[in-house]
Amino acid sequence: MSSYISRLRAAQSASKRLISQLTQREGKVSAFLRRLGLGGKVVAPIPRAISTTPVRKAEMADPLEHATGIEKRELLLKAAGCADPWAMRKPLRRGSGRENDPTVIPSAFDGRLVGCICLGDRFAKWMWLEKGAPKRCECGHFFVLKNVPPV
C-alpha cells in the first residue's frame, strides 16, 4: 500500500486531485492518508478552454453572389423589375379557339402540358401540346404552341 501511495504522490495532477478528494471524505482511508502526510493538499482542477466565433449578420454575402443558373437569372429579372418571370400569376384565358384562330400557349420547349376547363365541366382536361399544327380539345377548342425565349 505504501508503494501505491508513493506513486500517487509523484503522479500528475489528476492523481493528486484523487488524493485530495479521498482526504476530504470522512472514513478510514482519509485518516490513513492524513497519517501518511498526504492530507491537506488540494489541487485545483485545470480550467477548460472554450472557443467561440462571433457571427455578424451585416457581413453575410448577398444571395445573388451565391446563386447560379436559373435561380440567378430569376433574381436578376426580379432586380430589373419583373415580378413574375414565369408568367404564373394569372392563368391564360382561352381565346376564340377556332382552327384558324387557336389559343396561343407560350413555351420555351417543344412541348407543354395544357389543361382546358371546358364548359359544363368541373375539372380540367389535360393534354400534351407539341410544336407544330394546332391541337383540338375534347370540347372543340384549338390550341397552338408559340416559342418564347427562356428565362
Rank of each mutant, 00 (worst) to 15 (best):
M88F: 01
A79L: 15
R94D: 02
W86I: 02
L92N: 04
D62G: 00
S96Y: 11
A80F: 11
R93Y: 09
R94G: 05
I70E: 11
L76R: 13
R93E: 09
W86P: 02
R94S: 08
P85F: 02
R73S: 01
G69L: 01
K78F: 09
P91F: 04
P85N: 04
L92G: 11
L75T: 00
R93G: 06
M88C: 01
L64P: 00
T68C: 08
C82E: 15
P91W: 07
A67P: 07
G81T: 03
L76V: 11
T68D: 09
C82W: 14
M88D: 10
K78Q: 11
S96A: 12
A87G: 09
K90T: 10
H66Q: 14
A83Q: 13
R94C: 11
R89T: 07
L92K: 11
H66K: 13
P85E: 05
A67T: 08
L77F: 09
R89I: 04
M88T: 02
K78A: 04
G81P: 08
G69K: 02
E65K: 12
L75F: 07
R73E: 03
E74Q: 12
D62I: 00
G81D: 08
E74N: 11
R93V: 13
T68H: 11
R94W: 01
P85S: 04
S96Q: 13
A83T: 13
K72C: 01
L75K: 07
K78P: 03
M88G: 02
E71D: 12
D84Y: 07
L77N: 08
L77K: 15
P63C: 03
K78N: 10
D84A: 03
G95S: 12
K72M: 00
K78I: 01
L64T: 05
L64K: 07
D62V: 00
W86T: 10
L76F: 00
A87P: 01
R93A: 13
E71W: 03
M88W: 00
K72V: 00
H66S: 10
